[in-house]
Design a protein around this nucleic acid. Structure first.
Lengths: 129, 129
DNA sequence: GTTGACCTTCCCATATTGGGAAGGCCGAGG
DNA sequence: CCTCGGCCTTCCCAATATGGGAAGGTCAAC
């Protein structure tokens, strides 16, 4: 299977597959013509990566998860530790965004939003502090 | 006032002040020695930028907000439009992160997290699909 | 007049994904 | 046999925002 087919099978673009290889997340065999060659196992790895990315894991975490996945003697405690740390990071970031949205939403509530120039949003951004 | 003092007064690093100037968000005067020179008005602009960044506005939005702020004939409708669009973007991203956290948290609930290798988290990442 | 704190510009790095150019390889159809 | 479309290769550049650090100029104080 060439890279295009592996991309279609895994849901990761060919561009990113090459990138993941460049940063050492994968290895790919090469055919006589220099083309990368993939098998079912490689596609499984790519899908694993995609699922981890879909959960927001940064690539460094993905690297560790892949290593754990491929280590039959792993302790699930290590996986759980990584996962819970990531959950905490996600929640923290979500809360930060939610808080920004709430602040700005509150300011917008008091903005007429018409042709007049008065605007509590700009007033707040211009506050001294 | 030199850049260091402007940085301290505005809460934006000197590094970023130079960057903002490089991308045309600000202009700064120069002294005879080539040093950038800032006044109270410049610091007010810098603070405006910082407040907008604190609300998560991307720099392109900050550029528009600055232009609106400095336009006495602005319509507050335009500011409100920008703000509400940003609120929607923030909420959408927050929801996306929250959803990831929930999915992963749910998986982690079912993971023993001990010395055994079985792990529903890895099983899920490795699912075919 | 030297020292230390400040300033300058320029390059590099982070993390992730994509666009696009220049060129090689392959299979199909004329 | 030749050509064309579609795939592959590598390499460079783009975006987000921020910071590190080098090499060198300036200034104020001692």
């Amino acid at each position: 299977m060439n890279i295009g087919e592996a991309a279609a099978a895994s849901g990761i673009s060919a561009k990113m597959i090459r990138h993941y290889e460049a940063i050492g997340l994968l290895r790919a065999g090469r055919g006589a013509n220099g083309y990368r060659v993939y098998g079912a196992r490689d596609v499984a790895v790519l899908r694993f990566i995609r699922h981890a990315r879909d959960l927001g894991f940064p690539l460094e975490d993905v690297r560790r998860l892949l290593a754990l996945w491929q280590d039959r003697a792993r302790a699930s405690a290590e996986v759980k530790r990584l996962a819970l740390a990531h959950v905490a990071a996600l929640e923290s970031k979500a809360e930060s965004l939610r808080s920004m949205a709430a602040s700005l939403g509150h300011l917008a509530l008091h903005c007429h939003g018409d042709a007049r120039p008065d605007c509590p949003i700009l007033d707040d951004l211009a506050r001294k502090e």
